[in-house]
C-alpha cells in the first residue's frame, strides 16, 4: 500500500509544471524514504532528478517499493482538476496498474476521486557521481529565468562564466550580442534576493538556451536557484522545494570538438 498526502496540492501542480516541458512520461519510484524520479529528455541532453522526502509529506506510507510509470500529460489533466487550496492524496495498491488521486477541499465539503492508468516504462538510471564543483552560484530564481529568456533572443546557446567577481551570461547571434553581469551582493536584507558565489576555480561553459528555459519552469517552486559548474561536465540547476525536497536538472555542455 502506498499513500502520500500533501495539504497544498499547489506544490504537486508546480512540480508537474517543472518537468512536463522536458518529459512526456516518467516513472515515480516510491519507497519508505520518499518519491524519486530520474529521467532524460528525448534528446538525452538533459536529465531531471526529483526527490520528495517522505517526512515532507503531511502523511506518507509506503509498505513496499513501487515504481509508477505515468504519462505526464494525463497527470497534468488530473492535477488541473484540483483546486489551488485542495489537499491531494495519491494512493496505490501493491502491484497496482492504477494510481488514485483524491482532492479534498477545506472542511471536506467537496471530495473528488480520479484514477489514472499506470504505464510500464523502460527506465535507465544514470549514475551521477558526487562532484566537487568549481563554481556554485546562488541567485534569485526569477532573475535567472529573466536572463535565460532575454539571452535566448540572441542565439541558441549562452555562455555562463564565473569568476570570484561575479557571474556573466552571454549570447551572440545574427542580431548582435548580449552580456549580463551579476556581481555578488554585498549585503541584502532578504536572503532570497542575494547573489552568492562560491568559487574554487573560474569556469566558462556553453549551454543550449532551450533547455535552460525549460528548467526555469521550476521558478514558482523556489525563490532561489543554485547553479553548480565545473569545466566540461554537466551544469546542475537546483531548485529547493521547501521542506519537501528538490528538483535538479543536469545539462550537458557544448564542447569544442
Amino acid at each position: 500500500m502506498f499513500e502520500a498526502r500533501l495539504v497544498q496540492s499547489a506544490i504537486l501542480k508546480k512540480v508537474l509544471e517543472a518537468i512536463k516541458d522536458l518529459l512526456t512520461e516518467a516513472t515515480f519510484d516510491c519507497s519508505d524514504s520518499g518519491i524519486q524520479l530520474q529521467a532524460m529528455d528525448n534528446a538525452h541532453v538533459s536529465l531531471v532528478s526529483l526527490n520528495l522526502r517522505s517526512d515532507g509529506f503531511d502523511k506518507y506510507r509506503c509498505d513496499r517499493n513501487l515504481s509508477m510509470g505515468m504519462n505526464l500529460g494525463n497527470m497534468t489533466k488530473i492535477m488541473k482538476c484540483a483546486g489551488a487550496e485542495d489537499t491531494v492524496t495519491m494512493k496505490a495498491q501493491d502491484n497496482a496498474d492504477v494510481v488514485a488521486f483524491m482532492f479534498e477541499s477545506k472542511n471536506q465539503e467537496k471530495v473528488s476521486d480520479y484514477e489514472m492508468k499506470l504505464m510500464n516504462l523502460d527506465q535507465e538510471h544514470l549514475g551521477i557521481p558526487e562532484t566537487d564543483y568549481s563554481c556554485i552560484v546562488k541567485m534569485p530564481s526569477q532573475e535567472f529565468a529573466r536572463i535565460c529568456r532575454d539571452l535566448s533572443q540572441f542565439g541558441e546557446s549562452m555562455a555562463i562564466s564565473c569568476t570570484k567577481e561575479g557571474v556573466k551570461f552571454s549570447s551572440a547571434g545574427d542580431i548582435g550580442s548580449a552580456n549580463i553581469k551579476l556581481a555578488q551582493t554585498a549585503n541584502v536584507d532578504a536572503e532570497e534576493e542575494a547573489v552568492v558565489i562560491e568559487m574554487q576555480e573560474p569556469v566558462s561553459l556553453t549551454f543550449a538556451c532551450r533547455y535552460l528555459n525549460s528548467f526555469t519552469k521550476a521558478t514558482p517552486l523556489s525563490a532561489q536557484v543554485q547553479l553548480s559548474m565545473s569545466a566540461d561536465v554537466p551544469l546542475v540547476v537546483e531548485y529547493k522545494i521547501g521542506e519537501l525536497g528538490h528538483i535538479r536538472y543536469y545539462l550537458a555542455p557544448k564542447i569544442e570538438d
Partner: peptide
Amino acid sequence: KKRQFNIHHFYLGQ
C-alpha cells in the same frame, strides 16, 4: 565550433 554533448557521455547507465 562547439558540439552538443549528451548526458550519457558523462554519466554511465546503472
